[in-house]
Amino acid sequence: MERALSFEKTTGEFFLLVKDLLRRYYKPDSSQGYQKYQARELKLMDEFFKLKEEIHNALCDSIDTRTVMEKITKLVAIGNAYINEKVGISKFIFLKNEKLQSWPIFKSIPMISDATSGIGSSNLETTVMPYLTALAEFRERVREIAKDQKVIKILEECDRLRDEVLPELGVRLEDRTMQTCVKLVDRETLMREAEQKKAAEAQRIAEKEQKARERAEKEAAKNALKNVSPQEMFKTGDEAKKYSNWDGQGIPTHMADGQEVSKGMRKKLEKLWETRRKDFDKAQSNGAAS
């Protein structure tokens, strides 16, 4: 189930991004809307059509869902790679290709169906997007000024607009490298994502605090050992459970089961004993000096 939800989100987000780019760069009333494909675009379309055929074959093969998902995921990856190459250049006409937008498989996925519908039609998106785009561009300029002037409060308000205010209205802003991407998304979806993000952040903080406590406990235990003499180090705590007999210096001679400590083990224990002796003497000297 988790994999299916992840797939739906990834593919849906891709088409929402495509719609945002088409709004910005696709100019059907000018020559920019009818640009000639270059070698890169031709290669990309070949890859798309090949994947389309593979998806069709997988669907005909007793509806091989796993393969279909893998091929669509690959298609999205190829598209995203191209978009990252071409941001800021009005060469996205190929993304409006009807063969790509109208595959029946996409229509069966709610988030993708929503994302691919309404391009160029007179609907809510067409009405509100000019205003949202203007708001996003204004926010982007404000953020740049705030960064230059190091005005943290303004940056925080810009983040609040993105993370709290607009999601309540069903709008997602994504701060990308070159510009802010604007997406219309179901409000319930955004609210659910916000809750998941808060939960993940709370878990991250809890894990960080737990690790800090563990480090503190480990350090405290280490400091406590500094006050344990070498003669007692193998007779204290968990170490004492490992052995049953010790010599005059406190070095174990027999294991807990009564078996005599081997020569190799004896050398290791003596080395640990000597290290502890040096640390103990140093700690005692520092304590006396203070």
Rank of each mutant, 00 (worst) to 15 (best):
K218Q: 10
S6T: 08
E85V: 07
K242V: 09
Y25M: 02
P167Y: 09
E137K: 15
G258W: 02
C181D: 05
H56I: 15
R213H: 04
P28C: 07
D163T: 15
L42K: 14
Q259P: 01
G120E: 02
V261K: 00
R176H: 15
A221T: 13
I63H: 15
K278P: 07
A289F: 09
A194Y: 07
S229V: 06
T189F: 11
E195W: 10
L135T: 05
S108T: 14
F94E: 06
S6E: 12
A240T: 05
M255K: 14
I83C: 01
K278I: 15
I154E: 00
F15R: 02
A206N: 04
C158H: 03
L17H: 09
I205F: 05
A283F: 06
A206F: 04
F138E: 12
L44H: 02
E53Y: 06
V185I: 01
A224T: 08
M191G: 05
T65G: 10
K278Y: 10
Q196N: 09
R192E: 13
I105P: 00
Q38E: 13
M265E: 11
A206Q: 03
T65M: 15
K43C: 07
S285W: 07
A283G: 02
A39T: 13
V261M: 01
E144M: 14
Q231H: 14
E144S: 12
C158L: 01
S290L: 15
A283M: 09
E195F: 09
T10N: 11
R23M: 13
L44R: 02
L184D: 03
E195C: 11
Q35W: 11
A283R: 08
E274R: 08
P167V: 07
I109K: 02
L22P: 00
